[in-house]
Amino acid sequence: MTYSTKNINVEPVRLLLIDDEKDFVNILSKRIKRRNIDVAKAFSGAEAIQMLRHQEFDVAVLDLKMEDMDGIEVLKMLKIMSPRLAVIMLTGHGSAEAAEQGLKLGAFDYLAKPCVLQELLDKIMEAYAFRRQSD
């Protein structure tokens, strides 16, 4: 276990998971929660936007490929609503173009999906640290 958030962070990271694959969001949130991160689940772009209206998040993990809305559109909305939100994009293979576009729109970084949990966690911590720094 290289992960150390449990001990260092008093205030858990507030994470928003956005993916329309419910089972995936559920299990991922369970596993992330276990690592002392505060996870909220959104099963669609619309839901994510609604949640963002009532709650503040440090980091969002956004699947770029969803049924109802294009991930890029969601990203644009998120950035408008919460400019300081660090967004990590999950991209399928062969959509590097979209990822690059996302980076231009202000996303923090992207990961190819499916990704190893540890990588995602590292990326989340990185994004969180980045957000803290920019405060």
């Binding site: 694959e21 089972d23 995936f24 299990i27 991922l28 369970k30 596993r31 399928g92 999906k113 499916p114 949990l117």
Partner: peptide, 14 residues
């Protein structure tokens, strides 16, 4: 298949 696999891997990770 990507998503189901990802879920299975995560579930087993769980």
């Amino acid at each position: 298949i990507n998503n189901p696999i990802a879920i299975m891997v995560e579930e087993s990770g769980w």
